[in-house]
Amino acid sequence: MNIFARAKKFMAEEGNPNQWGGAYPERHRIEEDIEAGVCHVVTDEAGEIAGTFCLIIGTDPTYDHIIGQWPDSSPYGTIHRIASAGTHKGVADCALEYCLSKINTIRIDTHADNRPMLNWITRSGFSHCGTIFTHDGSPRLAFHLSKHQI
Rank of each mutant, 00 (worst) to 15 (best):
D93F: 12
E45W: 09
S127Y: 12
A50M: 13
D44N: 07
F53Y: 06
H148A: 13
G37M: 05
G90F: 06
I30Q: 04
R81E: 02
F4I: 11
H28G: 00
E32D: 15
S73A: 12
E45M: 03
G51C: 01
F10H: 13
T62N: 10
K89A: 12
G77S: 02
S74D: 14
G47C: 00
E14G: 11
A83D: 00
T59V: 15
L118C: 05
T87P: 03
A95W: 01
F133C: 06
I67R: 13
Y24L: 08
H80T: 00
S101C: 03
L141H: 11
T59Q: 15
A12F: 02
E97I: 10
D136T: 12
K8L: 08
K102T: 00
I103E: 07
I67F: 11
D113P: 10
P116A: 08
D93E: 15
F4W: 12
H111S: 09
P139K: 00
E31W: 08
H148N: 13
M1V: 14
I103K: 03
T134M: 15
H148K: 14
I121F: 00
I106Q: 05
T105G: 01
T87G: 02
G90K: 04
G137H: 05
R140V: 05
T87Q: 08
R107E: 02
G15W: 07
R27I: 12
A85E: 05
F126G: 01
D93L: 14
A23C: 12
G86R: 02
E45I: 01
H148D: 15
I34Y: 10
F53N: 04
G130D: 06
A12E: 06
H135F: 12
E48Q: 12
S124L: 07
H135N: 13
A83L: 02
Q19M: 04
L145C: 09
F133I: 11
L55S: 03
T59C: 11
H80R: 03
G15C: 06
K8H: 08
